[in-house]
């Protein structure tokens, strides 16, 4: 993986911020980012990397903010169906799972 989101996020953490990292763990169909792609969010709202083409980063950032407070990891499904809690869809029709965890 060429993009070093992990070290960017670790740098924010070392500077004293709470940080959460989201990682694509599984994809189906035409999801734009492959498994292993990372998206980092800090408590002051800094962001780096991506888990999609920009369709779901807002929703993931909301969950990331909760995760960096309570420390509880979350596994999110996107683009599955309307009944799912996560109604933010992917315009491309792909589906994916994103794991969100607090860093450090």
């Amino acid at each position: 993986m060429s993009e070093d989101i992990l070290s960017v996020a670790a740098g924010w953490r070392d500077a004293g911020e709470a940080v959460a990292i989201a990682t694509v763990v599984e994809t189906w169909g035409s999801s734009p980012r492959p498994p292993g792609s990372r998206f980092a969010v800090s408590e002051s709202g800094r962001m780096a990397g991506s888990v999609s083409g920009g369709c779901i980063e807002g929703a993931v950032a909301d969950v990331a903010r909760r995760t960096m407070q309570d420390g509880k990891p979350q596994l999110l499904d996107f683009g599955i169906s309307d009944e799912m809690a996560w109604e933010v869809g992917l315009a491309c029709g792909g589906k994916l799972k994103v794991f969100v965890e607090k860093l450090g």
């Binding site: 953490r13 763990v25 799972k97 794991f99 860093l103």
Partner: peptide
């Protein structure tokens, strides 16, 4: 985190394994 960063820094191949049910 620090062990993972150390492995990356040392250019040692390493796989981070995460149990998705509990992290």
């Amino acid at each position: 985190l620090s062990r993972l960063q150390a492995a990356i820094e040392a250019k040692t191949p390493v796989a981070l394994c995460t149990r998705l049910s509990d992290g």
